[in-house]
């Protein structure tokens, strides 16, 4: 845990709205994140919990530099000590391009990164398909032929295939059945070991967080209200809001 963190966020504030006036009406500027600071250590799974609308997703967008897409802005420091992190989305049905085969989808990040021949790329895709427990024959399939769990495996694979150091997983299992959830969580843990990954694991489900994370930050209305190891947090919650969340999860 004493290695250099892969990600450090310092005093991050983020806002929506307040952009240039459209048709003479200036939208009100709304602050979503308030002075958020934390870090993710190499090889760590950091859980981020809080109710919906508390700024979890905004935080992940800010980290990825995607806030502009949503009309948001931010100030503060976000220090990446790794190549560009990748993202796994909640909804496995919109995260894969329906016009292409699974093989094409997995190959695309490699094509963009470059440095591999077509033959090497195909081999890497097949290897990855085996690692995520699907098998090489899935390269020919189309996303709409797959189940939700299979799709989520593919989107995880397409995030991991370029070997980033950090993966942001925004509610990666909340759209799935409980039995599938366990399999996907196991896959995340396996891939973490294999590729030395770190995760920011965003969830509203404390049971899932307890299973997979080593440390947790609790967020409420854009503020980080508590930060602790999983065991400490679940055994001795300090903040009343954390207690409330824990009580609700019982």
């Amino acid at each position: 845990m004493e290695t250099e963190p892969v990600l450090e966020v310092r005093h991050l504030n983020s806002y929506y709205g307040g952009g240039p006036a459209l048709l003479g009406r200036k939208s009100a500027r709304k602050q979503v994140l308030h002075d958020v600071s934390f870090h993710i250590a190499q090889g760590e799974i950091l859980g981020l919990v809080g109710e919906s609308g508390c700024g979890k997703t905004t935080l992940s967008r800010a980290i990825l530099g995607m806030l502009g897409d949503y009309g948001g802005t931010c100030d503060g420091e976000i220090i990446h000590r790794s190549r560009r992190p990748q993202m796994v989305f909640q909804d496995p049905f919109s995260s894969l391009n329906p016009a292409h085969t699974v093989g094409w989808i997995l190959e695309e990040p490699l094509r963009v990164t470059g440095g591999l021949t077509a033959e090497q790329r195909r081999a890497a895709v097949e290897e990855m398909l085996v690692k995520i427990g699907l098998g090489p024959e899935f390269a020919q399939r189309r996303p709409w032929e797959l189940s939700g769990g299979q799709r989520q495996r593919i989107s995880i694979a397409s995030a991991v295939i370029t070997h980033p150091k950090l993966i942001l997983a925004d509610e990666p299992v909340s759209a799935l059945d409980v039995t599938i959830q366990a399999q996907i969580l196991q896959l995340l843990v396996d891939l973490k070991k294999e590729y030395d990954l770190s995760y920011l694991f965003i969830s509203h489900d404390l049971n899932v967080v307890y299973q997979i994370c080593s440390r947790v930050i609790v967020m409420k209305k854009g503020h980080i209200v508590e930060e602790n190891t999983v065991d400490e947090l679940f055994a001795h919650p300090q903040h009343p809001y954390t207690r409330q969340l824990l009580a609700a999860a019982e």
Binding site: M66, R84, Q86, S95, T162
Partner: peptide, 18 residues
């Protein structure tokens, strides 16, 4: 434009034309 698979393509660094 705003579907997740296009967002992840942007995230991976796929060029605009592509």
């Amino acid at each position: 434009r705003d579907l997740n698979y296009i967002r992840s393509a942007r995230l991976v660094g796929v060029g605009k034309v592509r």
